[in-house]
Structures are given as structure tokens and as C-alpha cells.
Design a protein around this nucleic acid. Structure first.
Lengths: 146, 146
DNA sequence: GTTATGGGTTCCAAATAGGAACTTACTGAT
DNA sequence: ATCAGTAAGTTCCTATTTGGAACCCATAAC
């Protein structure tokens, strides 16, 4: 299997990995969700090399998670924003944060949290089935080959 | 930032990336959720090199997502199973599958799906707040630096 | 004794990542 | 007019990871 063709794989897990399986990409998305818009903003926050940052942003644009739009001309400068596809990744990011917080221990307090826009309180996510409302966990569901 | 220290980072997104940010690891977890138990089972299914598979399994064991137990002695042979931490990754995997299916198009039908153990029907996941039941999307929540 | 099975390790080439300097196109200050 | 600064990259070179194949070991089966 070639890494570069992973985004064409029929398996959604493989296509998801073409996004989150690249070094740095998840952190770039974190910054985007936190409101970072510009190339140097990502670079300063993450300490990623400019070279890789340019590549990752290009790939995220190609995959449709981010888009680049000019915020000024002369000199031409662009900003990077999440597309609807990128924003739809929000719940996945939330679940990743929740899972890592609960399952990969750290002695330092987390420098980010997810808050409700309604009341500003930290959210406590649970995945349920849309139709029945049943919580979906390893105990109530299975991945199956079709 | 050193890649090898990512699992010690105070940010849960960084710690999550230490799991899903390695090449192959998400696919290894997919196979584990599908029921694969043995080294050669993973290797046959994925076409990963034995070298990398051994490394990834070691890392997943070290991070606490999988554990290795003997299923026979003479000759000693082990199988790999998800730990509670690994099984807790189930809802994240489910959300990743759902997001990729909806947002990263493929012309071929997906070779896996997630079904309910109760009625066998394909699940339709939605993330809600445990206390209020409010759906959690980009429109109702934000990641914040603390 | 030879072949097969399961679970690895070793070796080397190829691809990817990291670090630093360089480039382009301006703006604003001296 | 020159110099420093800003924003967004690109280039070059080295270090680390990955990919591919072969090799190793213990045992069982033919």
C-alpha cells in the first residue's frame, strides 16, 4: 500500500488516516480550531518547520479540510480557514481530546479544553445513536467487514 | 518538539497524535476491532512489513491500548488484544469512520461498517453533551486555551 | 530430513522529517 | 536611499523513519 494513495482507499479508516496519520496534521487542526489563521501563526505556535507546514497546509487544502483565501493584496497574503469538511471534524477532535484525557495520563493540567458556546461550561461528550439514543461503546457496537 | 516525547505532552491532542499519528497504527487498531488477534493475522491483512508491525504493536502495548498474552507454550506464542483503554478508543474510531465516510468521498462502497450489537443495524452516531443532551458540533462548542 | 508455521530480527535502500539559510515582495522608520 | 521588519514560502543538507527482502529460531507435521 502506498501512503500517497491512502486518500483513495475504499476503507474510511484508511482515508481518515490519510488526514490524521501525518505528523503534525492533528496539531495544525487544533490550532485552526483555536482560531489561528496565518502561516506564521501556525509556525510560531507549533515550532514546526516552515517546509513541513507548507506541505501539510497544501495537503489539508487538497483534501478539502482547509482553504486559503487572500486577506490582502500588495503584497498578496493568504489566511487559512477550516472548510465545512474541516469544521465537521470538530466532534472527532472533541472525542480524541476526551479519550486522550481519560486514557493517556499526564501529570500536567491540559492546556486546552472544549467549552459549550451556550453556557461556557466544559462539555462532557457521549456518542449515541441518532435514532434510538443508545450510547455507542465497545459494549454496544462492533466494526464489521462487509 | 521531539516525536518520541509526544506521549508526555500536557496537551491531549498531542498525546492522541502519539497514537494515531504513526503510520499504520490506525489500521492496526481497525484490525484489532475487527477481531484479528495474531501477528501474522495483522501482517496478512495489512501488508505492513513485519518490522514495523512489531514496533507498532510494542508501542501500542507501551501506551496501554493493547496487551500481549500467551495462547500456547512450546513454542511460546502470543496474541494481541485490546485493553480497556484500547476498547475506549471505539467511539473515536466510530466517529472517524463516520466523518471520513461523509467528508472524504470514495467511489467504492466501504468495506467496513459499524453495527449495533442489539439489532444488527448500522449505527448513525451523534455526539451529545452528557448532562444536557445538546448535540456537540462546531456550531455549539469551541476549543479554548486554558 | 525437509517443509511449514508463527513470531520475530537484521540489513540496506528509499522516503520523510528537521534545521537553518535564502528569496520575494512589500511597509515603515532614519 | 538605505536599513530593518513582516509574511509566506522555497532550497539545501543532514538525520530519522519506513519499506522490502532475507534471515533466524523453535516446534510440528510429512
Amino acid at each position: 500500500m502506498k501512503w500517497s494513495d491512502l486518500d483513495q482507499d475504499p476503507c474510511p479508516v484508511a482515508r481518515a488516516m490519510s488526514v490524521v496519520g501525518d505528523r503534525w496534521t492533528l496539531l495544525i487542526l487544533r490550532e485552526a480550531f483555536l482560531g489561528t489563521l496565518r502561516f506564521d501563526g501556525f509556525q510560531d505556535r507549533l515550532g514546526i518547520t516552515r517546509h513541513l507546514l507548507a506541505e501539510r497546509l497544501k495537503k489539508l487544502e487538497a483534501l478539502g479540510l482547509m482553504h486559503r483565501t487572500p486577506y490582502q493584496e500588495r503584497p498578496l497574503r493568504h489566511e487559512y480557514r477550516l472548510t465545512p469538511t474541516g469544521r465537521a471534524f470538530g466532534p472527532v477532535m472533541l472525542l480524541l481530546v476526551d479519550w486522550a484525557t481519560e486514557n493517556l495520563p499526564s501529570d500536567l493540567p491540559p492546556p486546552v479544553r472544549v467549552v459549550s458556546l451556550e453556557d461556557g461550561r466544559e462539555v462532557d461528550p457521549v456518542v449515541v445513536d441518532r435514532a434510538t439514543g443508545t450510547p455507542l461503546t465497545y459494549e454496544t457496537m462492533r466494526l464489521r467487514r462487509t
